[in-house]
Design a protein around this nucleic acid. Structure first.
Lengths: 206, 206
DNA sequence: ACCTGAACACCGTTCAAGT
DNA sequence: ACCTGAACACCGTTCAAGT
């Protein structure tokens, strides 16, 4: 059974890892199981992630936290080329709506993404990916908060607060849902609460 | 070396676990290492945490997220008796300051606690402890937001938003500090940013 | 370059046994 | 009741070997 060139790639590995996490949780992801799912010996993964599981985790975190699925996380973690998300940038610039609507759109997309990969949420607690996308996001924030009348340090602080609120909301939701609770909320109510807090925060920031 | 009755207890195990997490990270906490630190065979821990590591993790999460270190997490995870934190309740009731100052005090204490045990932060992403303290916190929130003029569902939503912001801020800080970054922030600036967002959120909520 | 297979040190947990 | 010690199935990773 000496099958060589199994067609492995960083992208395939990452996708399969997310699949396993979705199905069996983060604790269910082992190199051996990942190898099985890819129909490959576990050790083959180390050729694409030489630093092992830690590097795989970093890539997963980068992929999940990436506000748009451009696939930037598939390549190097420190992406020095910023060509591939020009579409996103143009899209953000072309958006003619008021600043708060632009930020709301961004925040809801970010929340949606975190929620989609909520099984990997705990990976984000200790890993800050430096994806090309984070620069794009920062540009969007600066532009919007500038338009809102903020200046200097306040812009960074407002962007930080918005980020914090988004990730915190998802953590809060994941923490408190799925428990056989007498007062369990459904997805619609969670989304409503998110928007309520988001509106409040944006109103208070300016 | 058949030493029996090593004086093990839930509390001692929990404290030692937090110690290991602080020193070597969450991944460095193994039952065997924990046993070594307690000068006991690893299997002795199972007598106090019959459900194993998962139960230990739940207890750690309950302890860390507990807004006041009353030791409630040492006993059962579903604490049905609420006698031990009457002091906290009385203290909260006796607080005569305006509602926003009371919430600010709570939020900063909560943040401080999460930051102290930041190594266990990722445990909070999937575990919602039902400690006696959470009832106390809820009472404090309801009282404060009621005084602020909120009513009905808005009180729950505001409390959720405040919780989300606090935990999100700590996750955000932990994510982005400790990386040899050109623009690394110090503890004072992180605290300032937290207060900035907190003030904004409270202002926007009412 | 890309993957295999054996090996090593470690892990969580069960279970019978000791006191 | 409280702890030990051996055992089992699993884990991440290294390293020499195959193509």
């Amino acid at each position: 059974m000496s099958r060589n060139n199994a067609g492995l790639s960083r992208e395939r590995i990452l996708i399969e890892a997310l699949h396993i996490i979705a199905g069996r949780g983060l604790g269910g992801l082992s190199m051996r199981r990942l190898g099985d799912a890819l129909e490959v010996e576990a050790m083959a993964i180390y050729h694409h992630f030489p630093l092992g599981k830690e590097q795989l985790f970093n890539s997963i975190a980068a992929y999940v936290a990436s506000p748009s699925p451009t696939g930037a996380a598939f390549h190097d973690e420190v992406g020095q080329d910023g060509e591939e998300q020009t579409e996103v940038e143009e899209q953000a610039v072309a958006d003619e709506r008021p600043w708060d609507q632009r930020l709301t759109t961004w925040a809801e997309a970010y929340r949606e993404r975190l929620l989609t990969y909520s099984g990997a949420l705990s990976l984000l607690a200790h890993r800050a990916p430096r994806t090309p996308n984070s620069a794009t996001t920062w540009a969007l924030m600066r532009h919007a908060f500038d338009e809102a009348g903020l200046a200097g340090e306040d812009i960074e602080r407002a962007a930080d607060a918005l980020h914090s609120y988004c990730i915190g909301s998802v953590v809060h939701q994941v923490r408190h849902s799925g428990h056989d609770d007498e007062d369990a909320l459904d997805a619609r109510e969670w989304a409503a609460r998110f928007r309520f807090g988001l509106r409040s925060l944006l109103r208070g920031l300016v």
